[in-house]
Design a protein around this nucleic acid. Structure first.
Lengths: 217, 217
DNA sequence: GTCTATACTTCGATAGAC
DNA sequence: GTCTATCGAAGTATAGAC
């Protein structure tokens, strides 16, 4: 579970990259730093080490590069979503193990270098890009909350926690995670990356403790 | 306390506006919709009903307009911060009255038409603009949390709530408010404004109830 | 202080030689 | 598929008449 992070610096070696990959990676880098609108095709070409015109042999236009990044993000995001049975197993070990374990797994997903940049990109472009916004609302806001609501419902049925409204609990739990996204990727993005990511996990665990304390039987 | 909102549609009547105000208001409008980088000086001039060149008689450049908006926002934000004694009075009526009353007052501050647009602008430009980011971190994140920490400390001393770590409580309470900012101004901004603002207040009140339930004696 | 006109720059995208 | 060269559009900003 730990060596998932190594995998030869995320994708291919720098040397083996195709031109299309170079354009893709350069765009991820620049878009995540400055935002889509403040990056020019010239910059992307320079960063990728090719001429401007060559970009259009691989992508129809600038927008198409962003689309490709979004699609990559979506597929990676869905690829690594928590399998149903694994969750059920964790839950039997008690609520704390379930949530702390879940938070760690989730952080591991974000912590892949290339994906971390795209997470930042997603956060800063959500206001402007409708595709990203729809994805965010559906897959990062509504679906997790619906899933959590279900989990809390089960926990209540199993008398693992107090019978508080499961929807409220889900919202209380997950809104904190969204807050951490924005705190990390927007408010604190430039302040020493590594330590901040670890702080995020600790904060999420502390939040989990507070919530479970509030509803424990 | 309620008629603060009327005040002749926020600022001057449309007819009486100076050119500088027209430029300012047009910029607020456009920046809050599309973001600073995606708005041109030409657009601002058109929206303000003047010629492009005339803008430079009032502002040094495009960036200076944004600076003026930020400064206006800061001064309005500080102008309306909660007076110390009023808070103490509210607190004596119990935690629920204090927080529900506080949430309402806070929402009233945002709900002024011109300020609502600037709040949106602040939320979407935070990642890009260092002045906004510093302001957000200091005045919307750290200071409120420090203030809340103090309030929870007093409540614990007065034995109004359980002796949970006040810093944790402050973070638990305020992170939800920040989440609501982002949910409202980024994720749901175009989905029927008025009802969403009201929902926000209800959500904040529900959150307050959950938290107070968790720490009540 | 506003207008017309325009300078100057940068941008996204394309054409055509290799 | 990459390069050179360049186009047309759009951007910021300035000059000068009124």
């Amino acid at each position: 579970m730990k060596n998932k992070k190594i995998k030869a610096s995320n994708s291919q070696n720098e040397a083996k990259k195709t031109t299309k990959e170079k354009i893709f990676d350069a765009s991820v880098d620049l878009f995540s730093k400055k935002g889509f609108s403040d990056v020019s095709v010239r910059e992307i070409a320079k960063e990728a080490g090719i001429r401007e015109g060559s970009i259009y042999n691989h992508y129809k236009n600038k927008e198409a590069i962003l689309d490709a990044i979004i699609n990559y993000f979506k597929s990676e995001f869905n690829k690594s979503s928590l399998p149903e049975e694994e969750g059920a197993n964790l839950m039997d070990q008690g609520p704390e193990v379930f949530f702390v374990g879940g938070a760690k797994m989730f952080m591991d997903r974000i912590n892949i270098p290339q994906m971390e940049k795209i997470w930042r990109l997603v956060c800063i472009e959500t206001y402007r890009n409708e595709k990203i916004r729809e994805f965010f609302n559906k897959e990062i806001l509504e679906e997790p909350i619906a899933g959590l609501e279900n989990i809390f419902k089960i926990m209540i049925e199993k008398k693992m926690i107090k019978p508080v409204d499961p929807r409220t609990l889900a919202y209380e739990y997950w809104s904190f995670a969204i807050f951490l996204f924005f705190e990390y990727f927007i408010l604190k993005y430039h302040e020493d990356f590594d330590s901040y990511m670890n702080q995020g996990l600790e904060k999420m665990i502390e939040h989990t403790r507070f919530m479970l304390d509030a509803v424990k039987i």
